[in-house]
Design a protein around this nucleic acid. Structure first.
Lengths: 208, 208
DNA sequence: GCAACTTGCGTCATCAATGTTGCAACTTGT
DNA sequence: ACAAGTTGCAACATTGATGACGCAAGTTGC
């Protein structure tokens, strides 16, 4: 007796399993090519087909399905892949120990570097993978801790709403990351931090 | 001889035509219910099914197809519908004639009012309908004119990049609009304008 | 009240995307 | 060189969404 087709596979193959035999070199390359192609393709059109992704990767569609059992598995793997880089980028800026302003610039520059290349994957914070959600939550907390330190150090005003400030910060980074090629990460980071801290208004208009 | 099924309709019925016989009262209500349900449903999940939209509207799926020949037609009609409100909201704030700061607050409050209820529809600026694209382009120009007036009046710093400032402004509005229920449009507008002009930093740190 | 309009329901055709499988040809590691 | 692993290709099954249609029942406008 055979299984009812639809239930046969689905949960068997895994994308980045814990205890899996290492891939052969060529398979590893294919895997990376697929993930990079998926990022490029999906950031252009989030509803892109597996076919389109395969084509962008220079690979047959069946090969994609061999590596990632389902479309969801592929997107999850992509999210995990990018989330690791994201976490590493934040960590490398020592956001909890460097002086607030320094940490803010450095974190911004590092994150922009990742975000420019992995925009789609980074938008998958609500991934099915709990690890992805966990890391995004942690980064969020780290960000708010940094802002609190900045406030205590007098860099941010005493009356700012930390949560709103973080959301504005995220939005600015997102906006800056759209300038893909234009400027390098350092210039963009300066723009973002500058805008976040000073806004666009004149110094003290005493308006309103 | 009959047309090859798939090509028979498609472009026949229209959503908001120019010279169409007016709808009967009940049909008008159904139409509105569908558009409102589409907004609710699609803002929650942009890939939602016609079935889901119909259900949210309390209507059979076939009825939706009777009013909007294709899914694209529905989304377009939604975009047109919301764009009209958007344009009216901007217009009502007299952005070209009121004093810059006043115009900025008023425009922000008005736009937030629309954006909170029509978030999905307003994200369809790149609609197939040329009218939608035209209006969005016009609003964009109006916004940049307002910012230039603000700069000339000393409200914005002389060295700000108008295009970047506008993008930041849009991003702030988008972010504020996520607070759906929380505050009223005026409080949110104050938050947005305040953040845009002053940022989150202390007045003159002379930092860096 | 009556004609015209509108809706729900059931049903069907079509299409596109997803996922599966077997096999032959090619690569890689040892 | 040889075994194991990997890929492309060419099918095929399944599913879900879209769109069309007729008919019976209900609603609206005059």
């Amino acid at each position: 007796m055979t299984l009812p087709y639809a239930l046969s596979m689905k949960t068997q193959r895994r994308s980045t399993p814990a205890g899996a035999r290492p891939l052969r070199a060529d398979a590893e390359r294919t895997m990376t090519a697929i993930l990079e192609a998926a990022e490029r393709t999906l950031s252009d059109d989030p509803a892109a087909t597996m076919e389109q992704i395969a084509e962008a990767a220079g690979v047959a569609r069946t090969t994609v399905h061999r590596r990632f059992a389902t479309r969801e598995a592929l997107v999850d793997a992509l999210a995990v892949w990018a989330t690791q880089r994201f976490a590493a980028a934040v960590e490398a800026a020592h956001p909890d120990t460097a002086p607030p302003l320094v940490a803010l610039y450095q974190t911004t520059a590092n994150v922009l570097g990742v975000k420019v290349g992995w925009g789609f994957a980074m938008s998958q914070a609500t991934s099915a993978d709990p690890e992805v959600a966990r890391v995004h939550g942690e980064v969020r907390d780290t960000c708010e801790r940094l802002f609190r330190r900045a406030r205590d150090a007098g860099v941010l005003r005493a009356d700012v709403d930390i949560a709103w400030t973080r959301r504005v910060y995220y939005a600015l980074i997102h906006e800056a990351a759209q300038n893909r090629d234009e400027n390098d990460a350092d210039a963009l980071a300066t723009l973002v931090v500058d805008t976040l801290l000073r806004g666009a208004g004149t110094p003290h208009p005493d308006r309103l």
